[in-house]
Measured scan of single mutants.
Amino acid sequence: WKVTVKGVEYTFDNPEEAKKFAEELAKKKGGQIHYKDGEFQVH
């Protein structure tokens, strides 16, 4: 499971962890999460 933040990729074994990480980042940066092709992208 991948989380991509401004072109930087983070990989997680667990989808729950990936989702949590993406949500935290989106909150911090005031961005939005897009889920696409099996990965979370924070913009």
Rank of each mutant, 00 (worst) to 15 (best):
W1R: 02
W1Q: 01
W1L: 03
W1A: 02
W1T: 05
W1M: 03
W1V: 05
W1C: 08
W1Y: 09
K2P: 01
K2W: 06
K2N: 02
K2D: 01
K2H: 05
K2T: 07
K2S: 06
K2G: 01
K2V: 07
V3S: 00
V3D: 01
V3Y: 02
V3G: 01
V3N: 00
V3I: 04
V3T: 01
V3R: 00
T4D: 01
T4F: 08
T4P: 00
T4V: 13
T4W: 09
T4I: 13
T4G: 01
T4N: 06
T4S: 09
V5Y: 15
V5E: 12
V5H: 15
V5T: 08
V5R: 03
V5N: 08
V5S: 12
V5C: 15
K6T: 12
K6N: 15
K6L: 13
K6V: 10
K6S: 14
K6P: 07
K6R: 11
K6W: 13
K6A: 14
K6M: 14
K6C: 15
K6D: 15
K6E: 15
K6Q: 14
G7W: 04
G7A: 03
G7D: 09
G7I: 04
G7T: 04
G7C: 09
G7Q: 04
G7K: 02
V8L: 11
V8A: 12
V8P: 00
V8Q: 12
V8I: 12
V8E: 13
E9L: 10
E9W: 06
E9G: 05
E9N: 06
E9T: 15
E9C: 15
E9H: 09
E9D: 05
E9S: 14
E9Q: 12
Y10T: 02
Y10H: 03
Y10K: 01
Y10L: 02
Y10F: 10
Y10S: 00
Y10D: 00
Y10N: 00
Y10Q: 01
Y10W: 13
Y10E: 00
Y10I: 03
T11M: 14
T11I: 14
T11S: 11
T11N: 11
T11D: 06
T11P: 06
T11V: 13
T11Q: 10
T11W: 15
T11F: 14
F12R: 00
F12V: 00
F12A: 00
F12W: 01
F12H: 00
F12I: 00
F12L: 01
F12N: 00
D13A: 10
D13N: 11
D13P: 09
D13R: 07
D13F: 07
D13C: 13
D13I: 07
D13E: 08
D13S: 12
D13Q: 09
D13T: 11
D13G: 09
D13V: 07
N14P: 00
N14T: 12
N14I: 02
N14L: 06
N14S: 11
N14Y: 06
N14F: 05
N14Q: 05
N14D: 09
N14R: 08
N14C: 11
P15H: 15
P15V: 14
P15S: 09
P15L: 15
P15F: 15
P15C: 15
P15M: 15
P15T: 03
E16G: 09
E16H: 12
E16R: 10
E16C: 14
E16I: 12
E16K: 10
E16Q: 11
E16D: 11
E16T: 11
E16W: 14
E17H: 07
E17V: 08
E17P: 01
E17D: 12
E17C: 10
E17S: 11
E17L: 09
E17M: 08
E17N: 07
E17I: 07
E17Y: 05
A18P: 00
A18Q: 01
A18H: 01
A18S: 01
A18K: 00
A18D: 00
A18L: 03
A18N: 00
A18E: 00
A18C: 05
K19N: 04
K19A: 08
K19I: 09
K19P: 00
K19R: 14
K19H: 09
K19V: 07
K20M: 10
K20I: 10
K20H: 10
K20P: 00
K20D: 07
K20A: 12
K20G: 06
K20S: 10
F21V: 02
F21S: 00
F21Y: 06
F21L: 02
F21P: 00
F21Q: 01
A22P: 00
A22Q: 02
A22M: 05
A22S: 03
A22L: 05
A22D: 00
A22G: 02
A22V: 05
A22W: 02
A22Y: 02
A22C: 12
E23A: 07
E23H: 08
E23K: 08
E23V: 11
E23D: 07
E23R: 08
E23L: 12
E23Q: 10
E23C: 15
E24M: 12
E24T: 10
E24Q: 10
E24N: 08
E24A: 12
E24C: 15
E24P: 00
E24D: 11
E24G: 07
E24F: 13
E24W: 14
E24I: 09
E24H: 10
E24L: 12
L25M: 12
L25C: 14
L25W: 13
L25Y: 13
L25D: 02
L25N: 04
L25H: 06
L25Q: 09
L25V: 12
A26G: 02
A26T: 07
A26V: 15
A26S: 06
A26F: 04
A26Y: 04
A26W: 06
A26M: 06
A26E: 03
A26H: 03
A26N: 03
A26L: 08
A26D: 02
K27S: 12
K27H: 12
K27L: 13
K27G: 10
K27E: 11
K27F: 13
K27A: 13
K27Y: 12
K28Q: 12
K28I: 13
K28A: 11
K28D: 12
K28W: 11
K28P: 05
K28H: 10
K28V: 11
K28F: 11
K28M: 12
K28L: 14
K29P: 08
K29H: 15
K29M: 15
K29L: 15
K29N: 15
K29S: 15
K29C: 15
K29G: 14
G30E: 05
G30V: 04
G30T: 03
G30C: 13
G30I: 02
G31H: 07
G31F: 13
G31L: 11
G31S: 06
G31Y: 13
G31P: 04
G31V: 07
G31Q: 05
G31C: 14
G31E: 06
Q32L: 10
Q32G: 05
Q32E: 10
Q32H: 15
Q32S: 13
Q32M: 10
Q32A: 09
Q32P: 04
Q32Y: 15
Q32T: 14
Q32N: 08
I33A: 04
I33M: 06
I33S: 03
I33W: 08
I33H: 02
I33V: 14
I33L: 07
I33P: 03
I33D: 04
I33T: 04
H34C: 14
H34S: 13
H34T: 14
H34I: 15
H34D: 08
H34L: 12
H34Y: 14
H34E: 11
Y35G: 04
Y35H: 05
Y35N: 04
Y35W: 08
Y35L: 07
Y35K: 03
Y35V: 07
Y35S: 04
Y35M: 07
Y35E: 07
Y35D: 04
K36F: 12
K36A: 12
K36P: 04
K36Y: 10
K36I: 13
K36S: 11
K36R: 09
K36M: 11
D37C: 13
D37Q: 05
D37H: 04
D37E: 08
D37Y: 03
D37R: 02
D37L: 02
D37N: 08
D37I: 02
D37V: 02
G38C: 13
G38Q: 09
G38D: 05
G38K: 12
G38T: 05
G38V: 03
G38S: 06
E39S: 07
E39Q: 08
E39W: 07
E39I: 13
E39F: 05
E39L: 05
E39D: 06
E39K: 07
F40V: 05
F40N: 02
F40I: 09
F40Q: 03
F40T: 03
F40H: 03
F40L: 06
Q41E: 10
Q41V: 13
Q41L: 10
Q41S: 10
Q41C: 14
Q41K: 08
Q41Y: 09
V42T: 03
V42K: 02
V42F: 04
V42H: 03
V42M: 04
V42G: 03
V42P: 04
V42W: 07
V42R: 02
V42I: 13
V42Y: 05
H43E: 10
H43R: 10
H43W: 11
H43F: 13
H43I: 15
H43Y: 12
H43N: 10
H43A: 08
H43P: 04
H43S: 11
H43D: 10
H43V: 15
H43K: 09
H43G: 07
